[in-house]
Amino acid sequence: MIELLDTTSGAIAAEFVRARRRSGSPAMGMIMTLVVVADDEDADEAMKVARSASQEHPARILGVVLGDTRGPTQVDARVGIGSGASGERALIRLTGEVVRHAQSVVLPLLLPDSPVVVWWPGHAPDDPASDPLGSLGTRRITDAASAPRNRAKAMLNQCVSYAPGNTDLAWTRITGWRALLASSLDQQPGKVLSASVTAERISPSADLLSAWLGDRLRCEVTRKSSEGPGITSVVLSTKDGDVQISRSDGRLATLSSPGQPDRPVALKRRGLDELLNEELRRLDPDDVYAATVKCMVDGGTEPAARKRAAKRSSAKES
């Protein structure tokens, strides 16, 4: 890694080229630019996760640390390639007035004609799509569960400001649950009469899962609290009996369905690197997520009938 103090985008870009030359101009095959917007203390950890994701998705990773807006403007960067990971990396620290114009630093460093993903591992703007850095991206990834303040509202905030291309890692965390629920309903064709989701009191993932179930099944979904970790149980009630998936240790779940023996199934809570990997696999808007957040925004405040109407119109839009 090369340290560049008080530098510019041009110098960072030149350093990328020099670094590549130094290592014998290897084929990089980078398919996207991943912009990681992090706090000073989280930046190194986030860069590590992004680096591990770039094993599967070779990328130019631009870490952006937004520092104090007071004081003189300064851009510092640490630039490097290789050392066991594919792609290129720069961690750029901004202080002073330039913090308000971070996009001016990032824009010249985007790879030509390839997707841009912006990821906020911690604190995220309330409206990522209209954030100056967020607007550079075609995909924006937030993580409501790691919001430093007001965690209870963080997910709803992201839902309200949804724009195509946004997703939250709370949604990624429930892919395993959703897959298992969907495949158990393949075997249990009866209509689901009601459902419940039990999880820690504050759990953006559980809220999304409830909204998704409500949206898809069109039935009452009860949200219950438990000690966790994460989501501990989901029950779908049909007239033949309950389909239940319960997981008390965040690792191994038990699937029970009417007329069938109980079966263990691995359902481990995944690490950030795996979650980010899943997100980067799809770079177009997630329509199912869109319908779910719509339902979440409408949910609770409006009668059921209006909810249906909202859903239908959202289906048309997408």
């Binding site: 897959a179 309903l185 393949d186 064709p189 099944l217 997408s318």
Partner: peptide
């Protein structure tokens, strides 16, 4: 033919992997 009528299935939902049935 297998997933007909399963409301949790949606062709748009490409995150859900193909899990083999029992």
């Amino acid at each position: 033919h297998r997933t007909d009528g399963n409301p949790l299935r949606d062709p748009q939902d490409r995150r859900l992997p193909r899990i083999a049935g029992p």
